[in-house]
Design a protein around this nucleic acid. Structure first.
Length: 372
DNA sequence: AAACAATTCAACCGCCCCAGG
DNA sequence: GCCTGGGGCGGTTGAATTGTT
């Protein structure tokens, strides 16, 4: 994954030579305290020596105050560039390599919930950067769009649909000022989860979210909602690349909630968990500790090459059957709507029946749209 | 082997928010 | 309240790489 950058080469690239030239010039300028000639900051790929300078600076002075790096080290890079280089490439504990299936699923779920909030998504993926996630998502989205495939995996689509229904049928909350995407689901999620006032993030753990979606799809009866989830995260069909991708591919064009502009705003009913302004950034960090860390299963990536996506998908699949989604494409949308209607009715009529006496029902409760 | 196309990803840019003066 | 600087975020670009013909 980590490609060899020109700057990483031991021998100076032409650009590095230019940089060295500029560096000397800059030193001259500062040395003579000439006010006329501003320091010309370098752009483009970083060189190994620049990396070393930046790392050395951070080692001695810590992160932050990035604009001081140029002044203190003579590094001909603007503060922003230094910060970016550090956060995306130099800081320790960065995870390199391709995304694991678990990470991919998590990204899809997070994107469904947060939209293009890459930094907040990165907060849930230790060792991953917002830039990395953004690149991954954009590439993947472009590829899937080209193939006419839904951007989100089925369970995420279901969650979108559920959120939509909850939002439009039961609630008429005004959108919070911070984001028009903030839906009632967010509020009820927090309450259903028993979150206190100090609970900064209302976002359910994505894998729980997946469980709840499949639980909802495999039953039409209240009691079944209370059953243990059909799978646990590590053994999730989505954690198994082949099954996951089979399911993924065969639901092409099947979702009523497949976003038309995947990189744009998420579904209006989607719970944007942004707390707005100052709190949002603090919450991003706070969220990290609340999310159970994934145990990525580094299996082989089975996702088809981009040039294979255009192949027509069969109307059903074993995985879809298992998930209660085995429907011909043209029936999927209507049937899903019907299924959701039934689910909705159950929730509406017997809201108390959906709340288990003891734990284990968190996923369900999150979909208890009728919760106060 | 070469040319071309497609893809990936590092880096930049502009905008925004916040804190401090 | 206004201004300014620092920092963060999301969108975009373009060079490098990889795949295909």
């Amino acid at each position: 994954m980590e490609r060899s950058r020109p700057g990483a080469a031991p021998t100076p690239s032409p650009e590095e030579e230019v940089a060295a030239e500029g560096h000397a010039h800059g030193d001259d300028v500062t040395g003579q305290e000439e006010e006329a000639t501003p320091v010309v900051l370098k752009k483009g790929p970083w060189t190994a020596s620049e990396d070393a300078m930046l790392m050395d600076h951070v080692r001695h002075h810590g992160e932050g105050n990035w604009n001081a790096v140029q002044r203190m080290t003579g590094l001909l890079r603007c503060g922003k560039s230094c910060r970016l280089r550090w956060t995306n490439h130099l800081r320790p504990n960065l995870k390199k390599g391709s995304f694991s299936p678990d990470e991919e699923l998590l990204i899809a779920q997070l994107h469904a919930q947060l939209g293009n909030k890459w930094a907040r998504m990165a907060a849930h993926l230790p060792g991953r950067t917002d830039n990395e996630i953004k690149n991954y998502w954009n590439t993947r989205t472009k590829r899937r769009q080209r193939a006419g495939l839904p951007v989100y995996p089925p369970e995420v689509q279901l969650h979108l649909a559920l959120s939509k229904r909850c939002h439009y049928d039961d609630y008429d909350f005004p959108p919070l000022a911070s984001s028009p995407q903030l839906s009632a689901t967010t509020t009820t999620d927090v309450q259903a989860l028993g979150a206190g006032p100090g609970y900064a993030s209302s976002r359910p753990a994505p894998l729980d979210l997946a469980r709840s979606q499949l639980a909802a799809t495999t039953t039409q009866q209240t009691a079944q909602f209370l059953s243990p989830p059909p799978f646990s995260a590590p053994s999730s069909p989505w954690a198994k690349p082949f099954a996951r991708n089979a399911q993924y591919f065969q639901l092409a064009h099947s979702s009523p909630v497949s976003p038309s502009t995947p990189t744009g705003p998420v579904h209006p009913a989607m719970p944007d968990l942004s707390l707005g302004g100052h709190g949002a950034r603090a919450a991003a960090a706070a969220d990290q500790s609340r999310l159970p860390p994934l145990s990525p299963s580094p299996g082989p990536r089975v996702e088809l090459p981009s040039n294979q996506y255009g192949q027509p998908a069969p109307p059903t699949s074993a995985a879809a059957v298992a998930a209660g989604l085995a429907l011909p494409d043209h029936q999927n949308a209507a049937s899903l709507e019907q299924m959701l209607q039934e689910l909705h009715d159950v929730i509406k009529v017997e809201p108390q029946a959906l709340v288990p006496a003891s734990g284990g029902g968190a996923a369900l409760e999150r979909h208890d749209c009728g919760g106060a």
